[in-house]
Amino acid sequence: MAAKLTPPVNERDHIQGSSHAPLELVEYGDYQCPHCGAAHPVVKAIVKRFGKNLRFVFRNFPLAEVHQYAEAAAMAAEAAARQGMFWPMHDMIYEQQSRLNVGALLTFAEELDLDMVAFEHDLTNPSVAQKVEADFESGVRSGVNGTPSFFINGLKYNGGYDYDSLAGTLESLISERQHR
């Protein structure tokens, strides 16, 4: 089966790094998934290591029936995005994953100095929910079968998500390019 990122990265995505970067890493993640929590510092280290050679994109894949707060957390990150604060909220949720609940999400928003009236409104805003659903649907179309799932330059990555495996794969793609 194809396992190609569908649709490709576009203007609706949250993108870290340059659009001209030769490497593109996309993660489908669930904010309450412990494996995604474990992958978070790894991704941070990868983003740092590859610098301007990499852009990182996060798409929501909440398994809401298994993880009670996954949906709310995804909504919180998207609500923060409406105030230009997607990545700070994204990081805060993963860094404090063990205390995740609805109250904690409000505390995070306060700590990030968000406009709380707008934030709370967006937590249940159908168009924010639509973004989360669209991310999920793009994930299943792309062949995501669990979280975290990664795509490198548009193709599903089936290796481990420890630092060495990810960095090694990205490294070899860069050297391939250089040798072409």
């Binding site: 089966m1 396992a3 569908t6 299943v140 179309r141 062949g143 079968n145």
Partner: peptide, 10 residues
Amino acid sequence: GINPGADGIL
């Protein structure tokens, strides 16, 4: 041993 996902189904 592999979860086939749902892209083929869709």
